[in-house]
Amino acid sequence: MHLEYTVVEGDFVNAGTASSSVKKTLKQLNVAPPVIKRVVVALYEAEVNAIAHAYGGTVSVDIDAQKIRMVVADRGPGIPNIALAMQEGYSTARPEVRDMGFGAGMGLPNMQKNVDKLNVSSEVGVGTTVEMEVNFC
């Protein structure tokens, strides 16, 4: 199954639409609730990042019997030092983002903790791509 979503620039109110929809789909597919939670927490963090730190982008999701693969690709400033960004507590979030309840520097470490495979690639001035996989068993 293939699903695609658009993450709209600056649209905080709708941040999480893709994650909500994926949650519903996985429920219908009878995936175990703890696995669903890991998937949607990681995807939600990535979705919020694409709005908080970039100018929106796309989410594409592929689901088969064994696993879910999610790719969040944004247009944005990119991440100059990925190792630094992955550290817990590191954040460059603007005040507007902090007002929304984000900017603790915990998103990327949260993704790492919840998924079985994480790959972050980024080109400064172009954008960032976050690829994640979660196995169903």
Binding site: F12, V13, N14, A15, G16, S19, S20, K23, K37, V40, V41, Y44, V48, M100, G101, F102
Partner: peptide, 13 residues
């Protein structure tokens, strides 16, 4: 925190 993300976060968590 009283905004859409409060509710979304609860949904995800």
């Amino acid at each position: 925190l009283c905004n859409m993300q409060t509710i979304r976060t609860c949904d995800m968590a």
